[in-house]
Simulated scan of single mutants.
Amino acid sequence: MSQSLLRFAPVLISAALIAGCTSADPRSVLSPGRGNQQAAIDAETGSAVVQGACPAVLLREGTAYYTTYAKGGDGDPAKLIHQASISDTTRQCRISGDQMIVTVVVTGRVVGGPQAKSGQVNLPLRVVALDGETVLYSELQKHPVMITEGGPAEQFIYTNASVTFPVSASRSAKLYAGFDPGPYNTP
Rank of each mutant, 00 (worst) to 15 (best):
M1A: 12
M1E: 08
A9Q: 12
A9C: 09
S14D: 05
S14Q: 08
A16G: 15
L17M: 14
L17W: 13
A19N: 14
A19G: 15
T22M: 13
S23P: 06
D25G: 00
D25A: 01
P26H: 05
R27N: 12
R27A: 14
R27P: 00
R27V: 10
S28H: 07
S28A: 14
R34T: 07
G35L: 08
Q37M: 05
I41A: 03
D42Y: 01
D42W: 06
E44L: 13
E44M: 08
E44G: 04
S47G: 03
A48Q: 13
V50H: 12
Q51C: 06
Q51V: 10
V57H: 04
L59I: 03
E61S: 11
E61Q: 12
E61H: 04
E61V: 11
E61I: 09
G62T: 06
T63M: 05
A64R: 08
A64H: 07
A64D: 13
Y66C: 02
K71F: 10
G72I: 10
D74R: 12
D74C: 01
A78W: 01
K79H: 10
K79Y: 01
I81Q: 15
I81D: 12
S85F: 05
I86L: 08
I86S: 09
S87T: 15
T90Q: 11
Q92E: 12
C93N: 00
C93H: 01
C93P: 02
C93Q: 03
I95R: 13
S96D: 09
S96Y: 00
M100Y: 01
I101S: 04
T103D: 09
V105F: 02
V105I: 15
T107H: 02
G108A: 02
G108L: 05
V111E: 15
G112H: 11
G113Q: 10
Q115F: 01
A116G: 07
K117R: 13
S118L: 09
G119Y: 05
Q120Y: 06
Q120A: 13
N122E: 10
P124D: 08
L125H: 06
R126Q: 14
V127S: 11
V128Y: 06
L130N: 10
L130I: 07
L136I: 07
E139R: 14
L140I: 09
L140D: 08
K142D: 14
H143Y: 05
H143N: 08
V145A: 01
T148P: 00
G150N: 02
G151D: 04
P152N: 07
A153F: 00
A153G: 09
F156L: 03
Y158T: 00
A161F: 00
S162K: 11
F165G: 07
S168Q: 12
S170A: 10
R171W: 08
R171S: 15
A173P: 07
K174Q: 14
A177K: 11
A177C: 07
F179G: 10
F179Q: 08
D180Q: 08
G182R: 13
G182K: 12
P183D: 14
Y184D: 12
T186D: 07
